[in-house]
């Protein structure tokens, strides 16, 4: 069995927190550049220019001051043994990255007493056991402006694809200018209450512009993007074509009585960095 020192995980996480918050991924850059080309409103184009100028100007200053909750997805191969605590290593990495990288500490220790923990820990750690002897780590800092506009619905099977379409659109309309459009829309369909939400979050990890491999869902992604970009909400909600850069749908089997549908919204600072150890 392969041995992996947890200190290597801590080092990788620290580095990834800094990179994720200062360098916008290529897929999002490309989507913003494309959106700027296709935008037809003068004010909307100006806002997209500012957003593009901002990601170019970032580093070492973070792209956005909301450097987020540190969402860390770890896929652990069944044939690797991690020496030391994985959770401690991830938290040590987050504390080091957020301190050394001058990133904002945005975590309170309790949802009601609201005292800041001071180092952005604990991370939100999602682990999964997979075949192989590698450890794949994805760091996806998530801002709260967009997270707060996310919703879930326990639809009825009879609501069907139309019900899903309506719920996603309604969620984007209700969000309006609040989540810093242009947004990226992650949709999770199926599973149960909690799995649908997780699917929606994982959908945001897929590159903007990629498509669900199933034709029905790939078409639904394109249709939803077109409908969302017809609302007129536009960049920052001030009117324009570019309300969303992409819609990513992930699905899984569900109960005969259920059609859970979760919508996780991300802002245009859609951050994710992956490394394999």
């Amino acid at each position: 069995m392969r041995e992996l020192d947890s200190r290597l995980i801590a080092e990788a996480v620290a580095d990834m927190c800094i990179r994720a918050n200062t360098v916008l991924p290529d897929d999002v850059r490309a989507a913003l550049d494309l959106a700027r080309r296709d935008e037809d409103g003068e004010a909307a184009r100006g806002i997209l220019d500012t957003i593009i100028e901002n990601y170019r100007a970032a580093g070492p200053v973070p792209i956005c001051q909301d450097t987020g909750l540190a969402c860390v997805f770890v896929e652990v191969g069944q044939d690797v043994h991690i020496s030391g605590s994985l959770m401690d290593a991830v938290n040590a990495g987050v504390a080091k990255g957020y301190t050394d990288g001058y990133l904002r500490k945005s975590v309170v220790r309790d949802p009601l007493d609201r005292v800041n923990t001071g180092d952005n820990t604990p991370a939100l750690l999602y682990t999964e056991l997979v075949p192989g002897d590698r450890v794949k780590i994805t760091v996806a800092p998530k801002g709260a402006g967009s997270e707060n506009m996310s919703r879930i619905a326990m639809l009825k099977p009879s609501d069907g694809i139309g019900g899903v379409r309506d719920f996603v659109l309604e969620t984007v309309r209700l969000a309006g200018p609040n989540p810093c459009p242009p947004i990226v829309v992650g949709v999770g369909i199926g599973g149960n209450f909690d799995k649908a939400a997780l699917l929606a979050k994982k959908a945001l990890l897929r590159p903007v512009g990629s498509h669900n491999p199933a034709e029905m869902y790939s078409k639904l992604e394109s249709e939803l993007l077109m409908l969302i970009n017809s609302t007129g909400i536009g960049p920052q909600g001030l009117g324009g074509r570019t309300t969303a850069l992409g819609v990513n749908i992930e699905t899984m089997p569900t109960h005969i009585a259920s059609l859970p549908c979760a919508v996780n919204i991300n802002c245009h600072v859609s951050r994710h960095v992956t490394e394999v150890l």
């Binding site: 500012t50 100028e53 901002n54 100007a57 792209i63 001051q65 245009h268």
Partner: peptide, 13 residues
């Protein structure tokens, strides 16, 4: 007033 959300690096200047 609205400032551009997500443009924190530029606005800091």
């Amino acid at each position: 007033f609205g400032a551009t959300g997500g443009a924190g690096a530029l606005l800091s200047r």
